[in-house]
Every structure is written in structure tokens, then in C-alpha cells.
Write a protein that binds this DNA or RNA. Sequence first.
DNA 1: TTCAATATTTAGCCTTGTCTAAAAATAGTT
DNA 2: AACTATTTTTAGACAAGGCTAAATATTGAA
Lengths: 225, 225
Amino acid sequence: MFKTGCMLTQSEENYLKAIYSLSEQNAEMISTNLLADKMATKASSVTDMIKKLSEKSLITYLKYQGCELTPFGRETALQIIRKHRLWEVFLVEKLNFGWEEVHEIAEQLEHIQSSKLTDKLDEFLKFPKIDPHGDPIPDKNGVFQKQIIAQPLASIQISEKATITGVEDGSSEFFQFLKRYEIGLGTEIKVLEKFSFDQSILILVGDKEINLSALVSQKIYVCQA
Amino acid sequence: MFKTGCMLTQSEENYLKAIYSLSEQNAEMISTNLLADKMATKASSVTDMIKKLSEKSLITYLKYQGCELTPFGRETALQIIRKHRLWEVFLVEKLNFGWEEVHEIAEQLEHIQSSKLTDKLDEFLKFPKIDPHGDPIPDKNGVFQKQIIAQPLASIQISEKATITGVEDGSSEFFQFLKRYEIGLGTEIKVLEKFSFDQSILILVGDKEINLSALVSQKIYVCQA
DNA sequence: TTCAATATTTAGCCTTGTCTAAAAATAGTT
DNA sequence: AACTATTTTTAGACAAGGCTAAATATTGAA
Ligand SMILES: [Mn+2]
Ligand SMILES: [Mn+2]
Ligand SMILES: [Mn+2]
Ligand SMILES: [Mn+2]
């Protein structure tokens, strides 16, 4: 359908993004099972794809050891992430989507092939530096500000105040949950109590007390100004 | 990846558009070869796809006779065309692309699955009625104004004047050709001469005389105000 | 060090969409 | 009516991307 020799399929691009994302947390090589889990697929399928990406010099692969992005692969992944986040900004800023709705659509838009389109979109949006979820947007050279010094909400001490600067990019359900409790970027919170038996946390948002599970409090990032 | 049971692949959507487009010119059923030609593929591949679309009640199919869109298929095709043309407007109006560059990109964007996105885009663009090439844009119910009464440039008599109201949606090369000669929507022209030996036509654009081949003069539509 | 549990790869099959080559149906011409 | 020429369909193959089941490598606990 399109010409250029080094064009990637949507599937290849999605794997690349997943490997990049896992590399952020894991220092070492990415294992087949970890990737299979992330991609919600089977280890055998991952092995096949890993070989393909390695063939294209996007990752290095050592049998039974795992894989790792090459500089070229990293650059490629960052360009996909750039597109994803720019489209998210477009959807929220220009089309008035809620921040909880845009991830799914951006998952499709990130695969549109036209670097001219990406650059013009970037310009149209006035070169935004972060997306609606607080994640940094790489520029056309793949350069981006490292995440603002943020820590998981879970790590805040009792009676401390903090401002939400980001949330982990995830399911629409998660964002709907946050919206339900009127939690968003810039929301100020105060930690009231922490329950050790289940690691849940009680916070104050406006004048409402909300109990958040350990899972949720790990996915919300805050900054203590 | 997406839920709804009746989701179409990009390939299926492209066939549907091609069948719709051919139905505009051909009164009868669309033959396998005609469609193969349009899709730049082989007749055997078309037969396979035709069966699939027929299975999904998007077309009616009679062996050896050809195929035809069902009302449901027509509606589906119009929604894809709607998306294609809305994105073309977006690219030209908002991102300042040239009208000759947008078709290729819109070929990709038209497959993004989200009717909410389409409707919000439509609203953002102020519900445009025609795309950058003069083609009408169906609304969310598939309703659109029939093409402005236009005739091919080839049919204009010598010494008559006319205004360009549309061009056939085609290759980027074609649009670049038109741009090269400063021919666009709204351009006023005058027919100076018509050469019967090759059906070419000599027109006046501004103060320049331009000879257009029969092929080109069939693809440009004009209106005599 | 040995052996079982776990992780990874291989082998073989499926679906989608494409192709070529061969078979069958239709159309056109005498 | 008969016989070509053309169109269309079928049959068989292939590549991409997925799956299951089986084989193999690695790990780590006794
Ligand atoms: Mn996202
Ligand atoms: Mn995001
Ligand atoms: Mn177009
Ligand atoms: Mn158009």
C-alpha cells in the first residue's frame, strides 16, 4: 500500500512502543514473557516478531536472553510516541474530547504515515511539551524533557499536600474512574490517611474524602510544590 | 483490537469506496474486471473480496454478473467518503497543506474508527459542504448535495468562458500538474481552440495559454456562470 | 550436582489478502 | 449453431501475524 522500503506495520510499531515503555522501568533486556504480557499475546508470537524487528535492526536480540532497542529503534519508537501524544493534544484541545477518551483514538492515529503531517500538527498545536496526561512529547528529533520530577501519590506522607502532574497512560476505564472523582492534571490533594493492611490511601480533593487503592495510588504522579 | 462485530478491514473499506465510485458512472452492476482495474489488483482477488462483502450484506453479488452496493453498503461507503473529505478539509484549512498533497494522507485517515471523532471534526471545521477538490461531503446521515451542475472542461465550446468547480480526485501527480499551471478551484478559463486529431484543448488561464490533453480535460469540471 | 519448575523457542496450523495458472462460463462472430 | 475470444471463477500457493502444543534452555532449590 505504501512505498518506502523501511515502512513498519502497525503491529511492528506497537511492539516497538511496548519495548520502549518496558525499557523505561526495566534496566536490563526485555524478556519475551514480559513483552508477551504487555502486548496481551503469546510468547511464541513475541519470539516471531522479535526476530523480525531484530532483522530490521530496530532491536538487538539474544536468544533466551531478551531484546533491547537499538538507537535507531529507540528513535523510531519516540516518533510513534510523539505522534500519539500530539494527536491526544489535538483531540482534547481542538475537538474538546475528555482526557479519558483520547488514548484509544490516538492508538490508531499514531500509525498515520507522514512526517510532514506530524510536523504541521505540532506547529498547529503550538509545539506542546506535554500531552493531556502529563507525559512529555518528543520533538521531531526525539528530544524531550525528562518527566517533571514526580513521585507516585503512594509515596506522599500523611498530612502532606501535593499537586497531580501526571497519570499513567492506560485504559479508558481508569480515566473514567479519575473523572468520576474529579481528579485531573493540576488537581490539588492532601493525604489524610494511609492504611497499611491494603496499602490504600485516603486523600482530600476539594472537600471530598476519597479512598484510593494501592494500584491507583501508584499510577497517579504528584509534585510537592 | 476493536470491539464491534461489524468492523471492516481497511481493505474491505477500500473496495467499498471503489464500488461506490464506479457505481456513480456505471448504471449497471460493477464487473469483476472493472473493479480489479480500479483497485489495481487481480480479478481473482476481487472475486474473493466480493464474496466476503456479499457475505456481510454490503453488496449483492451474482456470479458472472457482477456486484452492486446494498443500501447498507452504500451508507457505509458514504461514511468512509465523509471521513476522507473532512480530513482533506482539515489538512488544507487548518494545517495549510496544498490541495495536491492531501489525498494520500486522507486515504489513511479515512480508516480511523470513531464516529464521535468524525462528528467532532465536522463541527470543528464548521460543517463544510465541499472538500478542497470541489467534491460534496455527506453529512452524518449520508445526505449530501448532488455535485453542482458541472460538465467536463472537454465539453465546452470554443471561445466560451467557464469557472472550474471541481477536479476528479486522483493522484498527487495530477494535482501537482494543475498547480504547476496555476489551475485550481474557482480559476476562470476561456477555451481558445480544440484539436480534433488528439482531442486536446487550448485554454486561456490569466494571460497564459495552456494546452491540456484529452485525459486532463475530462478530469476537470467547470460551470458556465 | 541434580532435577524439577519456568522461560523460551520451534513446529505446525489458521485466517486474511494477495498472486498465478487452470477451468468454466459468457459473449461475439461467422 | 458453432467456435473463438474474453471474462470470471476456482484451485493452489505464499507472506504476515496470530495460536496451541511440543521441544529445548535456563534457573534455582534441594
Ligand atoms: Mn495515550
Ligand atoms: Mn497520553
Ligand atoms: Mn481525496
Ligand atoms: Mn477530495
